[in-house]
């Protein structure tokens, strides 16, 4: 039965990929530089592409799980290309609970009105209601994120999103940190991962010094990338700066906080608000200091 085994081959490939979970990632340190000059280089870049393709597939699988299977397929998506919803729910927004609602409604209606009776009847047999996972069921996303990270260790959102769910919904701070460190190992220059790690230090470990260092390092990496001519995410930079400023403010280190806020003012769209915050802080420094001691 050669056919039988062929049919199982891809399933096996899949399971082997998942089983590599506990083994240290081999391809961790390889930089993403496809060398197309040699045949071997071409092959490996092709392999890399297919790995990335599968990684993206599993990543969107996690997103589909988040919506209990109510998720556009490639055919639905070709009609209205959209960003992964998880990204909105994950690391990029400081408060993951707030979903971008306009995007939400668009996605909720991706099925549209049924074109014919077959289509409307067919909707009985697959999830056709929009919903989100909650009450700890968010854990169901994790295997796919893990698998995606195994296949494409350079995909940074995988780490930040997994960490977001692990630490905010499932109370698994240690696992989140461990996973982020794996991500950092594969992407030593990732300011996003450093920022997430910093947030764990600040919010979960209450380790201000550690958080301070990580935020600073994250900003440093961001600037490095900018200087190298890359186009790092401005929004993440704003976030890091804002978090760093808040951290300094809470530690009573107002001049440093003001320093961060000044930087933030340059890049943020909400310049007035930040200007007001700076003024408040200045007032605290100049003032008698009584409110502080209170």
């Amino acid at each position: 039965m050669p056919k039988l085994f062929l049919a199982f081959l891809f399933v096996l490939c899949f399971s082997v990929a998942a089983l590599r979970e506990n083994t240290p990632s081999i391809s961790v340190a390889t930089p993403r530089q496809p060398d197309v000059n040699t045949g071997a280089g071409l092959l490996s870049s092709l392999m890399g592409d297919s790995r990335r393709m599968f990684a993206n597939h599993f990543f969107s699988k996690a997103d589909a799980y988040f919506h209990s299977g109510y998720y556009p397929t490639i055919f639905d998506r070709s009609a209205s290309p959209e960003r992964s919803h998880l990204q909105g729910g994950g690391g990029e927004q400081p408060e993951g609970e707030d979903h971008n609602h306009s995007e939400h409604d668009e996605k909720a209606g991706f099925l549209g009105e049924p074109l014919d009776c077959l289509e409307s009847f067919g909707r009985n047999f697959f999830p056709s209601q929009h919903s989100h996972l909650e009450t700890g069921n968010e854990r169901e996303l994790l295997p796919w994120l893990k698998l995606s990270a195994e296949l494409d260790p350079q995909k940074i959102e995988t780490y930040t999103i997994a960490s977001f769910w692990l630490r905010t919904r499932l109370g698994k701070t240690n696992e989140a940190e461990q996973f982020l460190r794996e991500g950092l190992h594969a992407n030593p220059n990732s300011y996003e991962i450093l920022f997430e790690l910093g947030r764990i230090c600040e919010e979960n470990h209450k380790d201000t010094a550690c958080a301070h260092n990580l935020y600073a390092l994250a900003l440093q990496k961001w600037t490095d990338e900018k200087n190298r001519g890359g186009s790092p995410d401005e929004f993440v930079c704003q976030q890091i700066t804002a978090f760093a400023a808040r951290l300094e403010e809470r530690a009573g280190n107002f001049p440093a906080a003001i320093g961060y806020l000044e930087k933030l003012k340059e890049i943020s769209p909400a310049k007035d608000l930040i200007g007001k915050q700076i003024l408040d802080l200045r007032a605290k420094i100049d003032g008698p200091g009584i409110p502080l001691k209170k």
Binding site: E21, L142, K146, A162, L170, K172
Partner: peptide, 12 residues
């Protein structure tokens, strides 16, 4: 397979 020490993951 152990995913993040959570043994209640079932759907995958």
């Amino acid at each position: 397979v152990n995913f993040f020490n959570d043994d209640r993951i079932a759907r995958y």
